[in-house]
Design a protein around this nucleic acid. Sequence first.
DNA 1: TAATAAAGTTAGGGAACCCTAATAATAATT
DNA 2: AATTATTATTAGGGTTCCCTAACTTTATTA
Lengths: 149, 149
Amino acid sequence: MIEHITSSQEDYLEAILLIQKEKKVVRVKDIAEYFIVKGSTVNETLNNLKKRGYIIQEKYGYIELTQKGTRIARNVYRKHTLLTKFIQNILGVSAKTAEDDACKIEHHLSKETLDNILHFIEFTDRELKRKYDIKKNFHEYIHTKLDSK
Amino acid sequence: MIEHITSSQEDYLEAILLIQKEKKVVRVKDIAEYFIVKGSTVNETLNNLKKRGYIIQEKYGYIELTQKGTRIARNVYRKHTLLTKFIQNILGVSAKTAEDDACKIEHHLSKETLDNILHFIEFTDRELKRKYDIKKNFHEYIHTKLDSK
DNA sequence: TAATAAAGTTAGGGAACCCTAATAATAATT
DNA sequence: AATTATTATTAGGGTTCCCTAACTTTATTA
């Protein structure tokens, strides 16, 4: 048996957390719709996650995160949110694309880079805002550039 | 047969381009060392790339990119370089980590985000450098923050 | 409640990646 | 040139992720 968790499996845990927040209970069908895959695919991954103690699910029943699963889900969600904010607010990318990109790269960035992104956000938010209005300048610049294409 | 090229396959093409630049000829062994995988694994992927016309290789011979393969390799390399520069110079991440992260996420970012990163680099390089010295400020800030941990 | 609909599970297959072990071919060395 | 060492290839296995089709269980509703 494999000990290591994959990016896809982390995404499943995050999805379960998000669906739980919104719909109270989580079903195979919800996850299948979330990732736009078939139920049988979800089932397979869930069995894997079950085996390793990240989720609990009775046969034909609802899906729940264990403590272990919740910890990972929250962690992924935090990174996801951070990255989305960065890509959207700092880089000036549209909300939808920022969300998509964040989701794809959240598993692949080192702690060092994530920390620096966090600091970048904090820095631009708190320090630079009044001093130079860099975000405003940058966004104006970006939009001018892109619109003129 | 599948038409779509995977991230890993794109990385192979880029690696072949880089090895070619440095060593004139590209062998299975070079690629295996580059990715730290076994020769048999490389062989398998190369067969796939051959079938689809991205590379040419005679049995037991050197590996060469086709036009089609070169186009993709250069494209990946360009993205890779751009991202490394961004992560290293703008975010202030160490060279090695920036390189690693760039390699991992280069396949997953939308054109929109990449364009904005490019503009960000251009913007900070050309416009802000004299005006506010933001890069310098930011790096000082980051390093103070990180050192104090 | 019985019949239909919806959701979950199982079985069987395919593609990408990765490995080990065995074999074939090429390179290097004595 | 013949032997040894290095490289490349093939064969056989394993995991993840995704699918279709068949089947079971749970929900709905007539």
